[in-house]
Amino acid sequence: MSAIGLPLAFRRRTLPGFSLSLGFTLFYLTSLVLVPLLALLIRPWSLGFEGFWDAVTAPRVLASLRLSFGSAIAAAAIDSVFGLIIAWVLVRYRFPGKGLLDALIDLPFALPTAVAGIALSTLYAPSGWIGSILAEYGIKIAYTPWGVLVAMTFIALPFSVRTIQPVLADMGKDAEEAAATLGATRLQTIFRVALPMILPAILTGAAMAFARAVGEYGSIIFIAGNMPGISQIAPLMIVIKLEQYDYRGAAAIGVVMLAASFIMLLALNGLQAWAAKRR
């Protein structure tokens, strides 16, 4: 057969439809994703590296990047702690209504961000249910950077819970039983055995929560206040630059955010590899 000379990858396949499906897939991806991304990667450099650097280190831009990244880290940390507790409760405990609790976790994932945005803004405003209670203690959330943190915590929670949950469920109790027979108390077992075993999942969940939160827009802009230099997130800076027809500046910020996503993706892959090695 004439196919013998071809590299293995391109010989005739047993199943039909390879070239059609792969071809369509590549076409779709190239036109929708790769080409526009290319535009993003090229644009910031039209005035050279200096132009890029100036665009990115302008005070307002820097402040917005600091706010987006800083809040996302904090939100990921909060979501990791509470996500772990929620996953633990969902996997290890039995109680009426657990199914409902489980289903609710996906809410930030399914709810449109604008809906979440106006709801959170109303809730934490001085006249809102929560905002009014906090106001009595002099705490302001809405229209301050704290609002950004609250919105990010909301939006990223499912990423933490849903990453830890299956790992915890699969873990089995052998190791914990062994620890008990060796004389460990329940608390010792949890901290010395169970938690270290799910640490990779906790970190992965934190990374995914961060990635989601750092680029979030819709659920934040209503509650944030959007004051220049104080409570403007990076995606908002992009929108502002576009409205000013500063395509280059907008693209510069976009590239920074894309780089952050890329690094996060690498970190995640690294985490998976580390976890797999321990098996």
Partner: peptide, 19 residues
């Protein structure tokens, strides 16, 4: 269990993989 000092060896070892 933890007071019995009954050493238990599991079929699938149950070793602490992170240690």
């Amino acid at each position: 269990a933890r007071q019995r000092k009954a050493g238990f060896v599991f079929q699938q070892y149950a070793l602490f993989r992170h240690m």
